[in-house]
Simulated scan of single mutants.
Amino acid sequence: MTECAVILAGGQANRMGGGDKGRLMLGDQSLIERVIERITPQVDAVVLNANGDLSRFEDLGLPLVADSIGEFPGPLAGVLAGMDWAAEQGHEWLISVAADTPCFPRDLAVRLAQGDTPVILAATPDPERGRLPQPTFGRWQVSLRHELRASLNDGVRKIRQWTQAQGETLVVFGEDDFFNINTPEDLAWAEQHLK
């Protein structure tokens, strides 16, 4: 296996009132600690993507990378930062996961590897649309980083706009596998269900 993972923690958490959403506590662990615990056994290495003063994450013991494209262009810029780091480390594939989704599948990387395209995204069943993509959870061929950088510099911001152009594959997981915490109500719900 020559793949690593990037944890996307570069968002602004506007619906949560700002700050680092991944630092919110869920039970006795922060969201980001739960994410690290889940993804680490699945890959060879893990890097954290964040913006601002990266030293605030040094206690996690992970390599840290910031977006190379300015003005908070969104998760695609975090994927690019992860790809650049992965290339420096000699990895061919990058798995992306979100810092606010603490209970994603423990076999995420294995199942995404079943796709046969340069970009594979996780999806969940949707009664109306069939499959609902979970675009911050994906498997990305690191060699695409130059194309991704050019697209970001051309103004592309939506993940699916770019992944569909790469001929994405969707791998369907369970209905609740990617419950993410965007609001205080989401966190309260997660705390209830953790018990």
Rank of each mutant, 00 (worst) to 15 (best):
E3G: 04
C4F: 11
A5Y: 08
A5P: 13
A5M: 10
L8D: 14
L8Q: 07
A9N: 08
A9Q: 03
Q12L: 13
A13N: 03
N14Y: 05
R15G: 04
M16C: 02
G18A: 07
G19A: 10
G19K: 02
G19M: 07
D20P: 07
K21R: 11
K21I: 14
G22D: 06
L24D: 12
M25S: 10
M25D: 07
D28Y: 02
Q29P: 08
S30W: 02
V35I: 12
E37L: 00
R38M: 14
R38S: 15
T40N: 13
T40C: 08
T40R: 14
P41Y: 11
V43I: 07
A45I: 09
V47W: 03
V47T: 12
A50G: 09
A50C: 09
N51P: 02
G52I: 01
D53C: 03
L54P: 03
L54A: 05
F57E: 00
E58Q: 04
D59S: 01
G61R: 01
G61M: 06
G61Q: 01
G61P: 05
L62P: 08
P63V: 13
V65C: 14
A66H: 02
A66W: 02
D67C: 02
I69N: 11
I69T: 13
I69Y: 00
P73L: 01
G74V: 03
L76A: 09
G78E: 02
A81Q: 02
A81N: 08
D84Y: 01
A86Q: 05
E88H: 06
G90S: 11
G90C: 14
H91Q: 01
W93I: 00
L94K: 11
I95P: 09
V97A: 10
D100T: 07
D100V: 00
C103K: 12
C103N: 13
P105I: 00
R106I: 13
L108V: 12
L112P: 08
L112F: 05
D116L: 05
P118W: 02
V119M: 10
I120V: 15
L121M: 06
T124Y: 00
T124I: 15
P125A: 11
D126P: 07
D126S: 15
E128S: 15
E128K: 11
P133R: 10
P133A: 11
T136E: 09
G138K: 08
G138Q: 14
R139G: 08
W140Y: 14
Q141H: 14
V142C: 02
S143T: 14
S143E: 14
L144G: 14
L144E: 15
R145F: 00
H146P: 10
H146Q: 10
H146E: 13
L148R: 00
L148C: 06
R149I: 06
L152T: 05
L152E: 03
L152K: 07
N153H: 07
D154P: 03
I159C: 04
Q161H: 08
Q161P: 01
W162K: 06
W162V: 12
Q164M: 07
A165N: 04
G167S: 13
E168Q: 11
V171S: 04
F173D: 15
G174H: 12
E175V: 08
D176T: 13
D176P: 05
D176A: 03
F178Y: 05
N180G: 04
N182E: 12
N182R: 12
T183G: 09
E185K: 11
A188C: 06
W189Y: 14
A190S: 15
Q192P: 02
L194K: 10
L194R: 06
